[in-house]
Amino acid sequence: MHRFANPARFLRLAKVILPWSNAVAALCLGAGLYFALLGSPADYQQGESVRIMYVHVPSAWMGMFCYVAMAVFSAMALIWKHPLADLLAKATAPVGAAFTFLCLLTGSLWGKPMWGTWWAWDARLTSMLILLFLYFGYMALVNAFDDPERGHKAAAILALVGAVNVPVIKWSVDWWNTLHQPASVVKMGGPAIDSSMLVPLLLMAVGFKAYWISILILRGRAEIAAQKVRIIRMAQIHAAAQGE
């Protein structure tokens, strides 16, 4: 793992991966949008409103996936002091927050016509809202210190503590009775969803993952460059102070 922790190596790897992740994201999201809006049937109960699912469900997966990635990067940063892990955790946070926000918003837009309410304080919806606040807390904390290292450390601890929320989200619909229905795709006995509807769902999910990789590379590059700028500036100040 340490082999990839070197910023120079990351930049070289990023250069190779970026065109591929861009292409996969564009293709999958393009095809996914076509199947989601045109190439898939209406649901036998929910009619056309089921199309919201193709944004809502992959967004929910990404919200949780990004949090797990962030927590893993944070653990790597705390335990092994990988020079890159902090930067990758920091780069993942806004993507996770964006998808969690999308999940909540599209869920609301779906809940109004189907359930009859924009929002319900059931275990699934509430734990998802907590996830959004954890992302906000992380992003605020990571920038709250003058010394970036202290910010990274504090935020990494928050990311690890907040990770207990992820299994609560996943199994809230099984542990307690909720307004939200249980899982359809990842469950014992195979998906309870017709294959014609599974296609756009999975296309969108793969597209979102590729999108995350592209954003991770872009934000990672920005963080590495900013770090180098900081080091050069410090050296200049140092040199100026010595020169006087």
Binding site: G47, E48, S49, I52, L105, L109
Partner: peptide, 10 residues
């Protein structure tokens, strides 16, 4: 099918 006001904003 009557859900345009919800699907399109999403």
């Amino acid at each position: 099918g009557g859900y345009g006001g919800y699907v399109w904003p999403a």
